[in-house]
Design a protein around this nucleic acid. Structure first.
Length: 503
RNA sequence: GGGGCUGUAGCUCAGGGGUAGAGCAUCUGCCUUUUAAGCAGAGGGUCGCUGGUUCGAGCCCAGCCAGCCUCACCA
């Protein structure tokens, strides 16, 4: 409070707005009225305007982004949810309201009733017959100006570009950087398309607990919270896999959840502590079937969003058209790193890792070494969508053993732009094997691996009742959105990315 | 956690030991089809924080805080 008062005393820009607010009230104007009957969005007016129909009556409402005052007449640009439109206010037309308008500022939200016309300079605008203050802004808005040069290029001046301010004050970012709104509209469209696609295939969207007594379904460190009434610690979910599989046991043929997961780990341009994951489980199918579904799903989303399966990214074009390349992990390592690891023991694997200059921790087992070699030497080269199939068993405690390859599981990941897009398996449904795998994880945990998975007795009980053969997949939605909207940081596809608290 | 870069007016930025600067925004005056509107004038700053060096510190040094990039860890 002290800080607030200090700042307000200090800041002439804020003080001025308070004075204006008082002056408006003195004129009998309510600076915060209750509603406004707007008839048009700016984009609709611009899209439908024809010179021979000029004069249409409209009521628009939006935030003032710029004002050009010329004595007894003014131009201003209003921003509404659809975009910007210019309004023209003349003292001769609106009388005393023009004097009130003198007390309005960039950042204020106003309604303008009037008729549509085209200015001498050619811009479709609204000629005001009335102006109504809808919300007085108490704080100066960053002023971003732009100009279109002779070649039609847009030059932006004083862009609001400070990333910290943009993320902390996303509301300001959304106001002054129009591209930001577009990204989040595209995100919504991607999610809508995914839901439509899965619903059309008979999958049921469900909701499972965020607060879990035992976390599972992924290898990650959790956030811990506390439930007072029960006096127990609970974990924020790191995945919803084990709950969704319980629902397959329960008899649903296909279930999915678009879930916020929480992982208590580092942050960088690919990781946010809370992120959105699609998980999908389909009964009576295996991972081969699931590859086909992922291709179709991503292809559909891409076509809906971009009108094509070709998406520019990082200087190249990614083509999501089916079929995507399929290759086993061993074959990929042979093809991209020139080493055949099939059948090799830990000693030989360690030697090859050293030869390829891939650092490997001394306690890593064979599967971990293979995974490291793949991640370091192969994955970055996988730019076009590629399914990597058949992973080492020890890295995948929830995946079913490979039907023909000893030591491997039926698992695939789709790689795009050197990044993992999804992770999928033929789900392990043998309760005895699942128990044994959990026990292996518990041994790792006892050795200090904080990310090893926990044994979930209730999940095992569910499997013991019997789960049909099932294919499952997880798709990181944020990274999919990054890819399809051309954003380089996960923070640009999450409205309120995690930040250290302001001090 | 390591390394690099950054923090100066509401916004975008300059200034690298000697009285805090520019453009936009704001205020005053003029201006009834402007558009980065224009012209004339004015106000606005704990130069991220704390300490140190110095006659004197946005500037040099140290620590801290915050952000970005990058590597590591991690899916």
């Amino acid at each position: 409070m002290e800080h607030q008062e200090f700042q307000e005393e200090l800041n002439v820009l804020i003080q001025r707005r308070r004075d204006e607010l008082a002056a408006l009230r003195e004129r009998g104007i309510n600076p915060y009225p209750y509603s406004f009957r707007k008839t048009h969005r700016s984009a609709d007016i611009l899209a439908t305007f024809r010179d021979d129909t000029a004069g249409e009556n409209v009521a628009v409402a939006g935030r003032i982004l710029s004002i050009r005052r010329m004595g007894k007449a003014s131009f201003a640009h209003l921003l509404d949810s659809s975009g910007k439109i210019q309004v023209y206010l003349r003292r001769d037309d609106i009388g005393e309201m023009y004097d009130a308008f003198r007390l309005m500022d960039i950042g204020d939200i106003i309604g303008v009733e009037g008729f549509v016309f085209r200015t001498k300079m050619g811009e479709v605008s609204v000629h005001a017959r009335a102006v109504t203050l809808l919300s007085k802004s108490a704080r100066p808005l960053p002023i971003v100006k732009e100009k279109t040069d002779e070649r039609g290029n847009k030059i932006v001046f004083d862009q609001f570009a400070d990333k910290e301010l943009r993320y902390r004050q996303r509301y300001v970012d959304l106001i002054v950087n129009p591209g930001v709104r577009d990204v989040f509209r595209e995100r919504a469209q991607i999610l809508r398309t995914i839901r439509n696609f899965l619903d059309a295939r008979g999958c049921l969207e469900v909701e499972t607990p965020v607060l879990q007594p035992i976390y599972g379904g992924a290898s990650a460190r959790p956030f811990i919270t506390h439930h007072n009434a029960l006096d127990i610690d609970l974990y924020l979910r790191i995945a919803d896999e084990l709950y969704l599989k319980r629902l397959i046991v329960g008899g649903f043929d296909g279930v999915y959840e678009i879930a916020k997961d929480f992982r208590n780990e580092g942050m960088d341009r690919f990781h946010n502590p809370e992120f959105t994951m699609l998980e999908l489980y389909v009964a009576y199918q295996d991972y081969v079937w699931m590859m086909k579904l992922v291709e179709e799903l991503v292809g559909t989303v891409t076509r809906e969003l971009c009108g094509t399966t070709e998406v520019p990214s990082g200087g190249t074009v990614i083509d999501f058209a089916s079929p995507w390349k399929r290759i086993t992990m061993f074959d990929a390592i042979r093809e991209y790193a020139g080493e055949n690891l099939r059948g090799l023991g830990e000693q030989d694997l360690r030697r090859i890792a050293r030869k390829l200059d891939v650092p490997v921790e001394p306690e890593a087992g064979a599967g971990k070494i293979i995974d490291e070699i793949f991640s370091e030497r192969v994955q970055p080269q996988l730019i076009q969508p590629t399914f990597i199939m058949d992973y080492p068993l020890e890295m995948s405690p929830l995946a079913k053993r490979h039907r023909s390859e000893e030591g491997l599981v039926e698992r695939f990941e789709a790689m795009v732009n050197g990044q993992e897009l999804c992770n999928a398996f033929s789900e392990l449904n043998d309760p005895a094997d699942q128990r044994a795998r959990f026990e292996e994880q518990m041994k790792l945990r006892a050795r200090g691996d904080e990310e090893a998975q926990m044994l979930d007795e209730d999940f095992l009980r569910a499997l013991e009742y019997g789960m049909p053969p099932t294919a499952g997949v997880g798709i990181g939605i944020d990274r999919l959105v990054m890819l399809l909207t051309g954003q380089e940081s996960i923070r640009d596809v999450i409205l309120f990315p995690h930040m250290r608290p302001e001090r």
